[in-house]
Design a protein around this nucleic acid. Structure first.
Lengths: 401, 401
DNA sequence: CTGAAAGCGCTTACAG
DNA sequence: CTGAAAGCGCTTACAG
């Protein structure tokens, strides 16, 4: 037995008073005070049942809306719960029901925080909590977080990883189940996936560069072998192929999706014998890395070199120069991801589905013609009309004057 | 009784096999397979106790490190747990111990996501989870989130609100306890607080403007009455007073910490008969709002009007122009906030402490002299030498060339 | 040192 | 319709 004799006698006293019926005659205000006092005693479902003169079973079922009680009983329960200030204990409910009503989100970088906010909002809409895990892109962390599914801390997890899997992740995912993959793949995993339309994005970005007159185009991708890298590179190569160009291996760089290595890659690219006139970075983190390097080295964008990117991070339109980039909505990843996860958990979604979030080119000011002339609207992307008939979706924002 | 007869018989079968001792002779690999299989049966502490030939009490205590068992017993337990793939059920543990090992964070805007990441990381360092709540700055949401403390879903909450309290928040906080206030105050609340050094920040920003030769200086603050607004305004007024200037009420604007109203306030300010030559925005959101408005209206910063802000958001250095702003570290808010909360919960921190996160001026390119000349380093902030002897901490970053 | 047993506060088959 | 009671999987006084 617990050592809660003080609380116990307080509780007894409370009930002694309560059962005199005196309380019922007190004003609402005083009753509420009582409720608050008793709140300290942790009002449980038993207390409510006692006050309403019914069984805990009835209280539980009524409060969970699993039953339609005759009005007098129902309102007695409701009033008792209200008067006592009853709040069901979520932990106890979880233990007995086996459900946590909580979802988890594993994000690789703090920068994906925008996805976190959107996920939280959507989870809340469905009555779920959102537990956040920051894996810093470390397998050990990811694996350990995933096991929260097993101890029922969370009902399912949205996994956003950013590295190649050595098999550990795959195994863990298939053991725990109830995960949805976001943004990057873990090949073989039994999990629904939500990816960006990477190939199309690569296509749009590269066609835009070509339309502006570039032919010597470099690319800075994420880690080799990652889905995002592979697919965006596909789009890149494909767009080049459309006009009879080929990707020059000397102009291809791959690195983590981080600023520092992108800075290095950028500078390295410009030191080539025949430097590129434009670069396609596969992520805005890569682009800002390049921009910082450019600023320090006195290289002007787009005058000296054009830059097109992928993501459309917050404030990308206010950067110097305003960044031309392929937009993928972080919020959409969060919102749709949560829904896919909920559907998957409920058995409404198969473990083989792959969905895509759409992308669009947002044209701003980081791309000029190879001759250093700022790009005019005259050379607009009608020139990028796609030979294969694919529509070129592009949005133009206000350009810097 | 639950309807788990299949699981039950599977479990019985498992134990029947187990007790033949056959399992012990199987290879580690096969054992692990068994563990995984049995994982489906939910290995509990009882199973471990049974396998190790001890009581659940011993297993619990040993696994929780509350006791030093003689080595043979200890290792039998450890091995059994390992072999069976035992994972303690966090929910059950919470119900019996009354602790959730989870902290909550209520954030007013998705943009505070940087704080969320830092909080998560620090909570994890202490073995805690982080449940994220997105209040969208709504009292109802905040109040409802706070009650998670009462149902023991979380042990404590970091509260970041951004509006004036009508009393509801105060009442709730004092009822639930275990909250730490971040960034903004809820007057009267019994909670430790972590605020930015707002007065000093306002001082630094304004002195910088004055040192560059500005005398007609406007301010766009957050909502009136909010701690951040009041204190930054204090610093503003104080700095003006240092050189015998006074804040012109016609040049003061207050609005939500959002972009849209800041755009309006900015334009409005410039339509004055005697427009200001410089503006101090009390948050970078306000600054970017002003920058967007400026861009659309063809107003150049800093040539037409100078801008100094507060926050130092991500990529502020890459904006056009690079934003001169008072830095407060979002990460520090998260990290220190979590530690304060943990200390408060443990009774190691009083409900009356107010701590401050330091600020520093980061000088970039959004401030010029009132004549439209870009600010040269020659007019550096030595000119802002403070009459009252306060040091002017300022950091200069690379300026745009 | 060790363990049987009560208890945490719910949910939910099962039996009136 | 209604309720007594078992059970979720732990922790922890209490008694050997």
């Amino acid at each position: 037995m617990r050592s809660c004799s003080v609380a116990e006698s307080a509780r007894d006293f409370f009930w002694a008073v309560y059962e005199t019926g005196l309380l019922n005659r007190l004003s609402a205000h005083v009753s509420r005070e009582w409720g608050r006092l008793s709140g300290r005693l942790k009002i449980t479902i038993r207390d409510v049942a006692r006050a309403a003169g019914v069984s805990v079973t009835s209280v539980s079922r009524h409060l969970n809306g699993q039953i339609n009680l005759p009005e007098p009983t129902a309102s007695r329960i409701r009033q008792a719960a209200e008067r006592l200030g009853y709040r069901p204990n979520a932990i106890a409910r979880r233990l007995s029901s086996g459900k946590s009503e909580t979802l988890g989100l594993i994000i690789a970088y703090p920068l994906f925080a925008e996805i976190a906010s959107a996920s939280e909002a959507e989870a809340a809409r469905h009555g779920y909590n959102l537990l956040m895990f920051n894996s810093r892109n470390l397998v050990e962390k990811e694996v350990s977080f995933l096991s929260r599914i097993e101890d029922r801390q969370v009902d399912g997890i949205l996994l956003l990883t950013n590295h190649h899997d050595d098999g550990r992740l795959l195994r863990r995912i298939n053991e725990t189940g109830n995960v949805v993959l976001l943004d990057e793949d873990v090949p073989g995993a039994k999990a629904p996936r939500l990816f960006a339309d990477n190939v199309h994005g690569g296509l749009l970005a590269t066609r835009h560069l070509i339309a502006r007159g570039h032919t010597r185009i470099a690319a800075i991708g994420g880690p080799r072998g990652l889905l995002s890298t592979t697919e965006r590179l596909d789009g890149f190569t494909q767009a080049l192929g459309e006009v009879g160009l080929r990707a020059d291996p000397a102009l291809l760089r791959f690195c983590e999706y981080e600023e520092a290595p992108a800075s290095i890659a950028f500078l390295d690219l410009l030191e080539q014998n025949e430097p590129p006139t434009a670069i396609f970075t596969f992520g805005d983190m890569l682009a800002t890395g390049a921009m910082r390097a450019a600023r320090q080295a006195g290289i002007r964008i787009p005058d000296d070199i054009s830059l097109v990117s992928f993501d459309d991070i917050h404030n990308a339109d206010l950067l110097a120069p305003a960044l031309t980039t392929v937009r993928q909505s972080a919020a959409e990843f969060g919102t749709r991801g949560i829904n896919m996860l909920l559907d998957f958990i409920a058995g409404r979604k198969s473990e083989t589905v792959i969905e895509r979030v759409g992308v669009e080119l947002v044209i701003r000011s980081s791309v000029a013609s190879p001759h250093g002339r700022p790009s005019g609207r005259s050379i607009a992307h009608t020139g990028a009309g796609s030979p294969d008939g694919l529509p070129v979706s592009a949005r133009e924002e206000e350009q810097e004057s």
